[in-house]
């Protein structure tokens, strides 16, 4: 077995709208770099088999499981975490606000992943049907709320975002 340390990756990417540069090893996951190196702990680690969605972040607007997505893949791309959602004036993103308004979380562990997954949906399909929301959110698991408030929150966020666009 080779004892050589694999070359470090000089990783540069856009993180929540700002350019970042960080060194990582090829086998490091995006969640390890986000949580361990960049102190962004919003992405939660749970199942580690791409089933639960707690670690969801957006890479070039698409949701990925950051727990098993190599940080190396983020090179030159745009990464959005829950920490990057609030507006410049520190107001919450409409999806965040609607999750609060509709009581769409209890313990909150799945919430960052839920909200980012919902954001990916609404940015791509601003006016989804309930079936489309359910289909899209199928891979994000919540053990507390029973999902109905989450569905309501996303439905409401779609309406709020539509109104804001005018």
């Amino acid at each position: 077995m080779s004892k050589d340390r694999p070359a470090l990756v000089e990783l540069r990417f856009e993180l929540n709208g700002k350019d970042v540069a960080v060194e990582c090893e090829p086998q490091q996951t995006l969640s390890e770099v986000l949580r361990g190196r960049l102190n962004l702990t919003g992405a939660k680690i749970s199942c580690e088999v791409q089933v639960c969605g707690a670690c969801t972040v957006l890479v070039d607007a698409l949701p990925v499981s950051s727990c098993t997505y190599l940080a190396y893949e983020a090179q030159g791309r745009s990464v959005t975490t829950i920490e990057g959602l609030e507006g410049r004036d520190r107001t919450l993103h409409p999806i965040q606000q609607c999750f609060i308004d509709e009581f769409a979380f209890q313990c909150g562990f799945c919430t960052p992943g839920m909200i980012l997954s919902a954001k990916a949906l609404l940015d791509d399909n601003p006016d989804p049907t309930d079936d489309e929301i359910i289909h899209h959110m199928d891979g994000n698991l919540c053990r507390c709320t029973g999902y109905v408030p989450i569905l309501k929150a996303i439905r409401k966020a779609a309406a709020v975002m539509k109104e804001a666009r005018g």
Binding site: Q50, V51, G53, T56, L62, P63, V64, S65, Y69, S117, A120, H136, D138, G139, N140
Partner: peptide, 9 residues
């Protein structure tokens, strides 16, 4: 197939 994250990658 699987879920939205798996389908993306």
């Amino acid at each position: 197939v699987a879920n939205v994250r798996v389908r993306a990658t």
